[in-house]
């Protein structure tokens, strides 16, 4: 038993060690380069929580995406779905006209989540029943959902909205800790439990590792995959709600290209695009590496274009590192 635990620790160290080292290095470098007179430094707790808050939406989606990628699939529709979720909720809240806002907000969440479940079911249906490759199925959905969002809003953001709408994205429950960060951390913990300690999670990994073996071992492939896409879509909606709340508007334009950013974080976190191998913990660290990088580069005055170049290099470095490990 003790031995099993040491082994597990060793494996975790090999899996996360280099990434964690990279993260710490990143923070240290930005702390040193970004020293200014007036401020608490980059490595200060409030700043780190601020970065965490900015990556909450990405993080929530990345948890769902990790499940999808571990089954050997991909979900390109999340950027569009995220926008739709915010739009649907905002449209409902707008109708409240200022009365019973809380009730309308909750109804808006519910409606958006139903939309997410529906969208995930459609991806799942296309992939499991019609045998369409996940890339194609969700690519089609990505385009259609973006269109739907633009059609129902006429391409314009839904605003202004009552102040209460911003609770999810901006309210702090404990000083410095916004609701969104709490949601993210809950999703993260839930994702870990789900992947590592439930039958569903084990089946997800088995399918990604070898679908035919899993099927012949009695795993219901269609049902598990279906649930994975629904899970990913529902989490995407939660991310969409957080974002829309933070912005105080439901915009059909948000989230464009976010699917790729999310996939990048998952991959940097060591999850294999060919399926079977990956972890939520890895995704978390991967996400932090990416978002600390972006935020840190801004901190030291490197603007968007430079950030894009650096992110590309980091993705490559992470994948090369992974290759070296399995060598």
């Amino acid at each position: 038993m003790a031995e099993a635990r040491t082994q597990a620790f060793k494996r975790a160290l090999i899996a996360y060690g280099p990434l964690l080292a990279a993260l710490i290095l990143e923070i240290a470098v930005f702390e040193l380069l970004g020293r200014r007179q007036d401020n608490p430094g980059f490595a200060s707790i409030p700043n780190l929580i601020r970065v965490l808050g900015q990556s909450a939406e990405f993080g929530v989606m990345a948890v769902g995406m990790t499940f999808v990628i571990i089954t050997g699939g991909i979900d390109l529709s999340i950027g569009s779905l995220m926008a739709c979720g915010g739009v649907v909720c905002a449209m409902l809240v707008k109708r409240s006209g200022g009365d019973a806002v809380a009730l309308y907000i909750v109804a808006g969440w519910a409606a958006a989540l139903v939309l997410g479940a529906l969208s995930g079911s459609i991806s799942g249906l296309l992939i499991t029943r019609f045998d369409i490759p996940p890339f194609i199925a969700t690519l089609a959905l990505m385009s259609s959902l973006r269109g739907v969002g633009n059609l129902i809003t006429d391409g314009k953001p839904i605003s202004p909205l009552p102040d209460a709408y911003q609770w999810l994205g901006r309210q702090q429950i404990v000083p410095h800790i916004p609701v969104s960060v709490a949601v993210f951390l809950i999703v993260l913990a839930g994702g870990m439990l789900l992947l590592n300690h439930t039958q569903f999670g084990r089946h997800v990994r088995a399918i990604g590792g070898n679908e035919e073996s899993a099927r012949l071992s009695g795993v219901n492939i269609a049902r598990v995959k279906w649930r994975v896409y629904i899970l990913c879509s529902m989490l995407t909606i939660i991310a969409g709600l957080i974002l829309s709340s933070r912005l105080g508007a439901g915009s059909p334009k948000v989230g464009m290209g976010d699917e790729l950013g999310v996939i990048a974080a998952v991959v940097v976190g060591g999850t294999s695009l060919s399926g079977g191998r990956g972890s939520i913990g890895g995704t978390f660290v991967g996400l932090l590496v990416v978002s600390m990088l972006n935020s840190g580069l801004t901190w030291i005055g490197v603007e968007t274009f430079g950030q894009q170049v650096t992110l590309g290099l980091v993705i490559l470095a992470a994948v090369l590192l992974d290759k070296l490990k399995s060598w």
């Binding site: 590792g209 035919e212 073996s213 899993a214 009695g218």
Partner: peptide
């Protein structure tokens, strides 16, 4: 290709069919 999930452990393969 049909009997085992090669990337999983002895433990995980042993219990895969009867996790419930």
């Amino acid at each position: 290709n049909q009997g085992l999930v090669l990337g999983m452990t002895v433990r995980e393969n042993t219990t895969l069919s009867n996790l419930s």
